[in-house]
Design a protein around this nucleic acid. Structure first.
Lengths: 346, 346
DNA sequence: GGCGGGTGGTAGAGCGCTCTCCGCCGCCTC
DNA sequence: GAGGCGGCGGAGAGCGCTCTACCACCCGCC
């Protein structure tokens, strides 16, 4: 097809100026005589010039990409690793993260490289990729509190920002949600509706967010005269929500209010409740968490605690940007406030 | 932190050999004395050397990345563009595509750069990105038959492979499904179950796949004495499935079999059917399409036509790889066979 | 013992860009 | 009118790597 791609040199010759001048107009740096600018622009047009990123990166030591890493703590084989990606995106949560990240990156002509780090080798590859200058920094979304990747990155002095506070303290910036307040909002709403026999399905209790949501929920109920709250632990999936709800229901058939730590589990719980002849919200009020797309697509539409994921993800990207540019030196955290969204399920 | 990153030169000095020798052991090319190899490896270890990708790319003219583009035909503003990413990943389908692509790429130490091309500017940026050597080629998943991106890429002579046959002929390779056979499978299963009053919810009829699935479904029914099939057009979303099912049901209350062109719409249809007092599969048998994660998470679990998305995506990546390496010159197509997966809904 | 052919190493020329210096020129200042 | 200064273009030195020469050496062979 196209033989040799035109270089700066070619454009310069075509325009009758020096390479440096062409570079200046391409990058819009320093004043260049408008007439010459025009000359150069025309030459670029004529030659169909496109600057070579590799060459530029070599001297500027900056790429136009950041790594967007979904990481776990696993030791999984490569086959499982493959399924990891599919599984991860089964939760609409990650789509929202991608949306938010791209929202920040695109206007700056930057792009995310998608990486999955569920195995030790995969984690090493992320580190290697960054050290080799494949990307300027990393955005990490961990699915597990013991994820060793943040520490690895911090240790290597590579710019990285986390979604959610890491399990163990790590000198990296992160964005997070005031999960405790989210739990409180759910409890208050259930109480206001007049629920008396309230239970909850938590996320994996190893995850800090799950703990916090539970604590906020429990504390609020306790403060209003409900010292005992039946708890079942789930795994943030529809299936686990079904199992948890079933066990809760068998032990507490008179349940009239349920808080689940995400929407997927709420969806599962609603199904189980209905299968057991309970009407939602008539007999049992159900509140989810996240306000993901399933909250509006499932029936009844879910009352839920909204997590501004897109905004959080965009902020994560912004923080990383600042770290990369060196505008920000020390790790910070930005914590967002949850919001109750009332629909039909409670 | 780390001051200047060590270069090949540094390693060479440390090992007491030349730059070229170090390069050889790093890249495993030509015979190098085992003793010297060891020497070099130790020096690499000591210096913590990581090869600079930009420098390598500059001379090899190959990156380690491909663009994974989700494109539409839209003219949307940037704000809508932002939501596009979120919306796209609400369908588990795309997560599976990512999984399949990564499955092929990762073992080859390649990575996907995620791009969304819903606006004309975004499309130009994809082209520019590839022309500048940001990635070696593109994997395109179009959400719209009139998507201009494939033609743009083909015109620029850039390596690209499509998921699904393009709306208008374009000299690019693609992978696809035998959609017509999928429609046939659904029809046959419904007939076998003894359904007599059968209807279907299609995907957007502008999309070839929707047309094909419908044609296969309709032809099979016709061949078995059902010349007339009520049709409602949907948009591959839960909501559109609900609307379509509702309209179908109001006009044909005696419905006993329904084929929807994807699982999301099946999920919506089931909800509507239940809301109207129909039991699934007792009163109405429902068959979906895709075999996505919702097929097993919703109740009843969906009988559906399986599309081997991961495998298709992996093949797409393989084809692109071959085009990039120059092993494959002419566009090909690889068509996969669908498979009926019987669960509870039909 | 000289000679051809491996084998295993070095030297050095770029790849295409950025960016610092430098020099030219016109204008302002005294 | 001379000196200084700021605006604007050019020259050229790399950035870190690959890869094509090319060379030194050692082996077996006539």
């Amino acid at each position: 097809m196209s033989r040799q791609a035109p270089t700066l040199e070619d454009v310069a010759r075509e325009a009758g100026v020096s390479r440096a001048t062409v570079s200046r107009v391409v990058n819009g740096v320093r004043n260049v005589d408008p007439a010459i600018q025009d000359l150069v622009r025309r030459a670029i047009e004529r030659t169909g010039y496109a600057p070579n990123q590799a060459a530029r990166q070599l001297v500027t030591r900056r790429t136009t990409t950041v790594a967007l890493v979904v990481s776990g703590a696993g030791d999984a084989s490569d086959t499982e690793q493959n399924a990891f990606a599919t599984r991860v995106f089964a939760d609409p949560f990650f789509g929202r993260v991608v949306g938010g990240v791209v929202g920040h990156l695109r206007p700056r002509s930057m792009h995310p490289v998608l990486m999955f780090a569920e195995t030790p080798e995969a984690r090493q590859e992320v580190v290697a990729y960054l050290r080799q200058g494949g990307a300027d920094g990393a955005l990490i979304v961990s699915t597990h509190p013991d994820d060793p990747l943040p520490a690895l990155l911090a240790g290597a002095g590579l710019p990285a920002v986390l979604f959610a506070r890491p399990g163990r303290p790590v000198p990296l910036s992160y964005v997070d949600l005031a999960h405790r307040d989210g739990g409180r909002l759910a409890a208050e709403h259930l109480l206001e509706r007049g629920c008396r026999r309230i239970a909850t399905v938590t996320g994996p209790l190893a995850v800090a967010a799950s703990q916090e949501r539970l604590a906020g929920f429990r504390d609020t109920l306790a403060r209003h005269g409900h010292p005992y709250v039946p708890v079942a632990e789930g795994g943030f999936t529809v299936d686990s929500g079904m199992a948890a709800a079933a066990s809760l229901l068998s032990e507490h058939p008179d349940l009239d209010g349920l808080f689940t730590a995400n929407d997927l589990m709420a969806q599962g719980a609603v199904q189980v409740l209905r299968d057991h002849g309970r009407r939602v919200p008539g007999d049992v009020a159900v509140i989810g968490f996240d306000d993901s797309s399933v909250a509006v697509t499932c029936r009844p539409r879910l009352t839920t605690v909204r997590q501004p994921v897109e905004e959080m993800a965009a902020t994560m990207a912004r923080l990383l940007d600042e770290h990369i540019k060196g505008e920000r030196k020390d790790p910070t955290s930005v914590v967002f406030d949850p919001e109750l969204v009332v629909r039909d399920s409670a």
